[in-house]
Structures are given as C-alpha cells and as structure tokens.
Amino acid sequence: MRRELRAEWTKARTAPGTAWLLSAVVVLSAAASAAVAATVSCTAGGCDQDVPRLGLAGIQAGQAAVAVLAVFAVTGEYGTGMIATTFAAMPRRGRVLAAKAAVLTGLTLAAGTVAVLASVLAARLILPGNGFTAAGGHPPPSLADGPTLGAAAGTVLYLALIALFSLGAATAVRDSATAAGVVCGVLYVLPLIPRMVADPGWRRLLWQATPANAGLAVQTTTHLDDLPLGPWEGLGVAAAWAAAALLGAWLLVRTRDVRA
C-alpha cells in the first residue's frame, strides 16, 4: 500500500491541474461566502439568520471544485488511456483506488480547511457592516463559539466526503464529462427532488436521503428542531453515499477490463 500511496501522491503532485483546483476550492468558497455576506442585512425588523451557516454558504460553490478535482483524478487517466499503465504497474486495483482516495482526502481536507477559514474570515469582516454585530445580538461567526467550530469542522469533513463520492462515481462512469454531470446532478439537482414531493413523509425521507441536503445540515446552528435530522447524522448520510460510491467503484474496477 505504501508504494501505491507514494505513486498516487507523485501523480497528484505533478498534475498541474491539482494546484489550480485546490486554489479554486478556496477562492470559490471564500468569494461566494463573501458575496452572500455582502448581500444579507440584519435589519431591525428581522434578522432570523443562521449566521455561521451564512458564513459557510460559499462551500456550495467550492464543492464543485472539489468534485472536479476528484473526477479528474480518475477520468484524467481513463481519458488518456494511462489507466492501463497504472494498473499494469499496480495490479492490485483496490489498493490503487484506496491510495487515490487517501491522497484525495488529504488534499481536500487541507484545501477545505483553508476554504472554511477564509469563508469565516470573509463573513467576519463583512457581516458587521450589514448589521450583524455582537451589540445587536447577532455576532459575526467566530470559531471560538462551539457550534460554529462544529459547523466549520463538519463542513471540511463534508467536502472530503463529496470528494470521495465523486471519486467513486467517476471511477464507475470513467468518462469525464458524464462523471461531472452525475456529480453535479447529485450535488445540485437531487436536493430539489424533496421539494417536488407533496407528501410530508416522503419529503422528509427524501431530504434525509440526499447527500447535499443532509450533509450540509452540519452547518446548521439554529432552528435545529426544524431539520429532519441532526447535523452529524446528516454528515453520516453523506458518508454513506461516499461509501456506496467507493464500494461500487471497487467492485467494478476489480472485475472490469481496463478499457480506455
């Protein structure tokens, strides 16, 4: 396993897209969080905002870059046919997949931490100007606050789970554009499905089952009772999706012929 890890790390390190995409995770998250923070205001009339969640809203954008990073990690090899070289050099394909997952997780955790810190910082700088002040009873997000720290840490983990899910899906699909379509569908379109269902029971169940809805519940710090499931349980749902995708990918990659 050490050799697979080292090889995959060298690959990730020497692919020029990696640095770009990791920067994109940070920049997109921080920029989107800043944009959200700049456009909300806390007026005397109403200020029913979940402030930490506002500060982390940019992750919705940053997760796209995480997904692309994960998709490229696999489809870049299938698209060029280099996957044959990879599997000839490392015939234990399950280990290759595990090594890829490990490297990707590491990179995502690192970039995700920076992205979350940058987002919170942006929100801290911008929100007070829009009425979110400690004096007004709506302090800007601070990592010294327990629930906010939990939301921030959970968001980093969420990004890692999205990366793992994308990796599994891309390994199963093999084609770059199709994999991105599938992942975008799961991240952005699937969360809409619960809204299309009128029956409250089904609605709740579908909400609980969608990784982006349930996973991002980890950012919630207020109105927890309104959530169909707890923040960390939600992260568990995202983890289940990631595990299922990786398991499927592992089964396929073990038995399937390597075709570019």
Binding site: R3, E4, R6, A7, E8, W9, T10, K11, T14, A15, P16, G17, G76, E77, T80, G81, M82, A84, T85, T86, A88, A89, M90, A260
Partner: peptide, 26 residues
C-alpha cells in the same frame, strides 16, 4: 510493457511520468 505510447497525461513532464511509475515499484 509498452502498450500505447500515446496513453499518458499530456500535462505531466516525461520525468514526472516515470517518477510516479518508479514510486509505484518502490
């Protein structure tokens, strides 16, 4: 083995391509 010489990621340098292969074999 040499299967398909075109099958490599174009953005990686020749040395780095061989480097990850070398690392995969220790």
């Amino acid at each position: 083995a040499l299967l398909d010489a075109a099958a490599l990621q174009p953005s990686r340098t020749a040395r780095n391509h061989l480097l990850w292969l070398a690392h995969s074999q220790g």
